[in-house]
Design a protein around this nucleic acid. Structure first.
Ligand SMILES: [Zn+2]
Ligand SMILES: [Zn+2]
Ligand SMILES: [Zn+2]
Ligand SMILES: [Zn+2]
Lengths: 146, 146
DNA sequence: GCTCAAATGATAACCCTTATCAATACATCC
DNA sequence: GGATGTATTGATAAGGGTTATCATTTGAGC
C-alpha cells in the first residue's frame, strides 16, 4: 500500500500529472478489493470511501493504474473488462469455472515454454498472451452427481 | 455449402424453427467470407446479396449459426466479437500481430497436452479454452529495422 | 389456400466506455 | 501564505456494439 502509492505518485510526477484526492480514493478502493474486479465494482468501493467520486474519474484512474503498472487487464469475455492487481503479482493464466465463476490462477512452465516455441516457429516477436481455461470446478461437479 | 445448409436446416427443424430466406442469405454471406469476421462484416456481405436484410436479423442468425455448430466465436479483444467457420474447421488457437492484425492459426500438441495436465491438477472438468498469442509478425518487424 | 406460430426489420433501449466542458483542485513560484 | 496556470473533476452527452420491442410479414403443416 505504501509502495503502491509511492509508485503511483512517481508515475504521475514523472509526466507532469497530479496526485489528487480522487486518485487516492480509487487507488485505495482498488487495492482493497480482491482480484478480477470490474470497473463498476471499483466505483462502488470508491464511493464507500467518498460518495462524491464520479464514474468517469474511476474509469480514467483505472486506466492510469494499468499504465503505472499497478493494475492489469484480466479476462473479459462478456463485454465487461476485469482488472486485477499487478504490483507484486507475477504473470499467470486463469482457470475459470463456467458454473460458479470461481477463478484459479496458475502458471505452467510447460505451457509457457511451448508458447515460446510457437513464437519462434512463426517468426513472431512475443508481446504477451492471454490463456483462459474453462471448465467445471470440483465443487460444482459434485453437485451434478447429487 | 451443401452440407452446411443441410446442417442448419436440420438444426432448425429439430426445434421447430423455420428456414427462411433471410437465414439463407446470412448463411451464404458468412460462408463466403474468410474467417475471423465481425457481425458488421457479415451484415455488409449479406446486404450485397439482399439489401433488405435487417441488422438485427444478422445478429440473431449468427448466434443461431454458433448454436448449430457452423460458426464459433473467436478472439474478441476490443469489444467487438469475431466469428469464424466451425464446420470442418478443427480446434486451433491464434497468433495475432498487434501491428497489422494478421492472424496465424496454429495447433500445438504440447500446449494442448499441458493444458490437460492443468485441468487434472486442479480437478476441473475441461470445457474448452481460449488461447491468444500476441506479437509482431516478421513483416512488421522488418519495417521496424528500416 | 388457410392458419398460426415463428421470423422479420425498423426502432428504441441497453450496457459499458469515452468525449465534452465549465467548474474546481492541485503544484509551483513568488 | 497567496496568486497563477494547468491538470483534474464530475455531470452529462455521445459513442459503439448488441439486444429488446413490436407491428407486420413469412413460412410450414394441414
Ligand atoms: Zn464452480
Ligand atoms: Zn488473475
Ligand atoms: Zn504484422
Ligand atoms: Zn481461427
Amino acid at each position: 500500500m505504501r509502495d503502491e502509492r509511492a509508485l503511483l505518485e512517481r508515475y504521475l510526477r514523472d509526466r507532469g500529472l497530479k496526485m489528487t484526492r480522487a486518485r487516492e480514493t480509487v487507488l485505495t478502493a482498488f487495492l482493497g478489493l480482491e482480484s478480477h474486479v470490474s470497473v463498476e465494482a471499483v466505483i462502488e468501493a470508491a464511493r464507500r470511501l467518498d460518495p462524491g467520486v464520479g464514474q468517469a474519474t474511476v474509469f480514467r484512474t483505472v486506466k492510469l493504474l494499468v499504465d503505472a503498472g499497478l493494475a492489469r487487464e484480466a479476462c473479459h469475455d462478456d463485454g465487461t473488462r476485469l482488472f486485477e492487481h499487478a504490483y507484486n503479482h507475477a504473470h499467470h493464466d486463469h482457470l475459470t469455472c463456467i458454473r460458479c465463476g470461481a477463478i484459479v490462477e496458475f502458471i505452467d512452465t510447460d505451457i509457457e515454454r511451448a508458447q515460446e516455441a510457437v513464437y519462434r516457429r512463426y517468426g513472431f516477436e512475443s508481446s504477451g498472451h492471454r490463456l483462459e481455461l474453462y471448465g467445471v470446478c470440483p465443487a460444482c461437479a459434485a453437485e451434478d452427481t447429487d
